[in-house]
């Protein structure tokens, strides 16, 4: 399900004194099976951008095309539908997008509401027309995937720890087997191991073909998992690149106020001092150590 943003503009509270332009003329292609990280300061438009992909927000002007279905404002969409044949119009149902694009908000654990874990996770599938039986089956599959033990299925979600609650909330979204999974800072507030486990889960989904779009401030995640990086600033895309090029761009790093991942800055220092290692292979401390060993063997 490829995604294409064309000349998308979004203005919050249009025609009121609080009017603020949040996105300007966004043009962007996201191809199937990519792992895209969106980075930028608070208020740069990251969350506004992702909410367009499953039509929670509709553009003030321009469009997002998700697998052929256009997300547009009412007026534009009316005009667009007129230009289509009756047959083509059938494929323009926004509900299809909602089913195929899973969106996990920041701190999704605050959105749990059902009496039991299992009920909460099966709510989504039921809502999309699956029978009770099928919905429970899907819920159990995704709970297993996120590592929630069966003994917790009948507990109230509010009895669980913060990390467990977040897993349950994410299970609720992946129970619909979305082709595209959008995540807004899914590891914020988790301890290091909780964060690693969560990322490994998304990596499995990615390897099974799910397109992952993730808002994050964590550069260690960007370097380890992303295939592409998009940098936003005040509603504009200021850079689209591969993760390693991001860390060769000092100006952008300074703009983002992030430090490059430690393994990367260390590798750069080694290169500066004459060691022959390839920066593209360095993704974390383990791969850095491998590279150092390789270079040392060459010396001797």
């Amino acid at each position: 399900m490829p995604i294409k943003f064309s000349h998308l503009n979004y203005v919050y509270s249009k025609d009121t004194p609080l009017e603020t332009a949040a996105l300007h003329d966004i043009n962007l292609d996201i191809i199937d099976g990519s792992f895209v990280c969106l980075v930028g300061h608070t208020g740069s438009g990251k969350s506004t951008l992702i909410q367009h992909i499953n039509a929670l927000l509709t553009p003030t002007s321009g469009s997002v095309d998700v697998n052929g279905i256009k997300v547009m404002n009412k007026k534009d969409k009316k005009g667009f539908l007129k230009s289509l044949s009756k047959e083509e119009r059938k494929h323009q149902n926004i509900k299809e997008i909602r089913k195929n694009v899973g969106l996990v908000f920041q701190f999704p654990e605050y959105q749990l509401f059902e009496e039991t874990v299992l009920k909460d996770v099966s709510f989504g599938p039921k809502n999309f027309g699956f029978s009770d039986e099928e919905a429970i089956k899907k819920a159990k599959e995704s709970l297993k995937l996120v590592g929630i033990d069966e003994s917790l299925y009948d507990k109230s979600p509010f009895e669980l720890s913060g990390g467990q609650r977040r897993r349950v909330a994410i299970a609720g979204i992946i129970s619909l087997n979305p082709d595209i999974l959008i995540l807004d800072e899914p590891t914020a507030g988790l301890d290091p191991q909780g964060s690693n486990e969560m990322m490994e889960l998304f990596n499995i989904l990615y390897k099974n073909g799910t397109t992952i779009i993730m808002v994050t401030h964590d550069m260690d995640i960007v370097i380890k998992y992303a295939t592409d990086v998009i940098v936003l600033k005040k509603g504009d895309i200021i850079l689209e690149c591969k993760p390693h090029s991001l860390f060769l761009n000092d100006e952008i790093l300074k703009e983002l106020c992030v430090e490059e991942p430690k393994p990367i800055s260390f590798a750069k220092d080694l290169i500066k001092n004459g060691m022959k290692i390839s920066l593209e292979n360095v993704k974390d401390t383990d791969t850095l150590i491998e590279e150092i060993c390789k270079a040392r063997v060459k010396y001797e």
Binding site: G194, K262, T285, D286, L288, I289, R296
Partner: peptide, 26 residues
């Protein structure tokens, strides 16, 4: 479930590969 700072991880990891670096200053 905790982590250790990068310099410790690097020094310890190199040690297991037979590279002894006796420092924690980058």
């Amino acid at each position: 479930k905790l982590d250790i700072p990068f310099v410790y991880k690097l020094r310890n990891g190199l040690k297991t590969k037979g590279i002894d670096i006796d420092s924690l200053d980058e």
